[in-house]
Computed example of a mutant assay.
Amino acid sequence: MSDTIASLQRKINSAGELQSVVRTMKALAAASIGQYEQSVRALSDYYRTVELGLCVCFRQIESRSVRAEQTSRTEQNTVAAIVFGSDQGLVGQFNEVVADYAIKTLAAQPGKLHVWAVGERVHARLADADLPLTGLFAVPNSVQAITPLIGQILVASDLIHSSSAPLGAGAADKLSTNQTEVAELYLFYNRPKSDAIYEPVSLRLLPLDEKWQRQLADLPWPTGNLPEVVGGDTTTLRALISEYLFVSLFRACAESLASENASRLAAMERADKNIDELLETFHTHFHLLRQSNIDEELFDVISGYEALSMEKNIKASANNNLPE
């Protein structure tokens, strides 16, 4: 069915309203990117402080975590993973990219899996891959909502209990999950690169193995004053490991949210461009159809005028031919 002026006008109005929504979403996404990136930058300084504190602790105490880690891997060999995605759509391939990366990485991990998903969209993607999903968390909608989410993750996975146990006993290298101690914990999320580009990354958060401890112990101290731990070494180390776990989860979540909004911004920019092209097409058809209707009306007027003129001429000719 061919379009009419009224139907084209309705399409133009609908496209204009949709474009207004798209541009509002673009503005919200751009503003959100800024606050999440700022939170990551602010967190970097605190993360550096935690690393330096762990550096001092590992230099001054002898850790027996490697022996406990090796026993845990041999006896338990259970792997946990937390995958950060989104609750909402209009984010392009954001969820597919991180889910496929997590699926591919976890497929190479031996042992029993426990997977938590942050976001309904990525949860559905992981469920389609038949991964053993243990829990689902809602995606925070602001920087202030990240901290409660991290608290929920720590409680659900019992990370607080694990990290508060004595490191020498090896409990800090394990993650308790439904009475099962986990040998390894991985984080999967999208990390922003530049503009609207992001990449999926993974972070092995646990165990706190010898290589990780050695790297921290070898960190250069920023000043000439050599530090030392005041009070109990174990108590200080417990607190620093808890902060390390919290900061790592917070940063992963913030970077995932920044990537999500960058992906949404890119999707909205493409949608805005497509709507502009569609509106241009609609306006062109509208003006052509309107001009065509005007031409038809003018033709009807001219045809009517010519018909009346011809009729008048015929009558005048007939009157002239009548006999006197």
Rank of each mutant, 00 (worst) to 15 (best):
L278G: 07
V301W: 01
T281R: 13
I302L: 15
G304E: 06
V247R: 03
E255D: 07
Q291T: 08
L265Y: 11
D276I: 01
D272P: 02
S292H: 08
A262P: 12
M268Q: 11
A267S: 14
D272I: 02
A258P: 08
S292T: 02
N274K: 06
V247T: 11
S256I: 02
E255H: 04
F282A: 10
L288D: 11
L257M: 11
L265N: 11
F250A: 05
L289V: 07
S303V: 07
L249Q: 03
A252F: 03
C253W: 00
L298F: 00
F250M: 07
R251P: 14
R264G: 11
F299H: 04
A252D: 07
G304T: 04
T284E: 10
K273N: 14
I241D: 02
H283K: 13
F246T: 09
A252L: 06
A252H: 03
G304N: 09
S256V: 02
E243Q: 10
E269M: 15
R251V: 12
F282N: 11
E269W: 09
S242A: 10
L240N: 05
E243S: 09
F246Y: 08
S303A: 15
A254N: 04
T284I: 00
N293C: 13
S242P: 01
L289Q: 08
N261P: 13
I302W: 06
F246P: 10
D272L: 07
D300R: 08
A267C: 12
L279S: 08
E280T: 08
C253M: 10
Q291D: 15
L278T: 08
F299S: 12
A258V: 01
L240Y: 01
E297V: 05
D276T: 07
A262G: 15
E260K: 09
A239Y: 01
F250P: 10
E280S: 15
N274S: 13
L279P: 04
N293S: 14
G304K: 01
K273H: 12
V247W: 02
E297Q: 12
M268W: 02
A258L: 03
M268V: 06
E255L: 07
A271W: 00
I294W: 03
N261W: 02
A258E: 05
I275A: 05
Y244I: 04
I294C: 10
E277N: 13
A271G: 00
A262E: 11
D295N: 14
F282P: 05
F286Y: 13
G304P: 00
L257K: 08
